[in-house]
Write a protein that binds this DNA or RNA. Structure first.
Length: 202
DNA sequence: TTCTAGATTTCCT
DNA sequence: GGAAATCTAGAAC
């Protein structure tokens, strides 16, 4: 299990180091395991793309001010949940958004969560799109606001290390067209040639 | 394979 | 009121 010291570091380093790590979620005995293949860093008060830009603290984003290893889940467009891991010391409101994962087990359960049918009945299009986006992976792993404010240091939801070798691509973040000077910041990281990545570099 | 509208919570960026 | 750290179905090509 990755400990608090892992998350209590520079957010860009945590975002990069989370690639290849394994998210483990235990839903009453159903144990999901999935590899993190794409992340984005949100750098707190100076990052116009972050919810906490300008040190704005709201009911929604107050979890970002918590200590390293806290789970921040919020809803966007009214329907999609986004999964984030808080980094840095308490009151430094930075976090890493998990943008894509590669399922390692529970393919039928994940398929039911996403499309209401087992994996073998999915179209090839559905298989390719099963967890390649931040709103998709939360639905696949049955993640919602119940996890908001929890930490990553318990047996029901945590991240574990893995020794896989891969190359990393660095790119600008997705879906922040409003963020002016922050639009082009190279704060997105993903595993090269992994088919579950949401958006490839142009 | 690409486009569009519509889903609807939280905060006004 | 309007947009958001997004996704889907249905249509067109």
């Amino acid at each position: 299990m990755l400990n608090k010291e892992f998350f209590k570091r520079d957010t860009l380093i945590v975002a990069k180091d989370l690639l290849g790590k394994i998210i483990v979620k235990n839903d009453n005995g159903i144990i999901y395991k999935a590899k993190i293949v794409e992340t984005e860093a949100y750098l707190g008060v100076d990052d116009r793309a972050a919810h906490t830009f300008g040190d704005r603290k709201t009911e929604r984003n107050k979890i970002m001010y918590e200590d390293a290893g806290t789970v921040y889940v919020y809803q966007t467009y009214g329907i999609h949940f986004m999964l984030n891991f808080v980094t840095q010391d308490k009151n430094i409101p930075e976090a890493v958004l998990i943008r894509a994962i590669e399922p390692l087990n529970q393919f039928d359960k994940i398929s039911l969560n996403r499309f209401g049918k087992i994996y073998n009945e999915l179209t090839s299009y559905q298989k390719k799109n099963i967890t390649n986006g931040p709103g998709k992976l939360t639905k696949a792993l049955n993640i919602d606001k119940d996890l908001n404010g929890n930490n990553l240091f318990n047996q029901s939801f945590f991240v574990e290390d893995d020794n896989s070798i891969f190359n990393i691509i660095i790119d600008k973040r997705i879906g922040i067209d409003y963020a002016q000077e922050a639009i082009d910041f190279p704060y997105r990281f993903y595993i090269k040639d992994n088919s579950y990545v949401s958006v490839l570099k142009k």
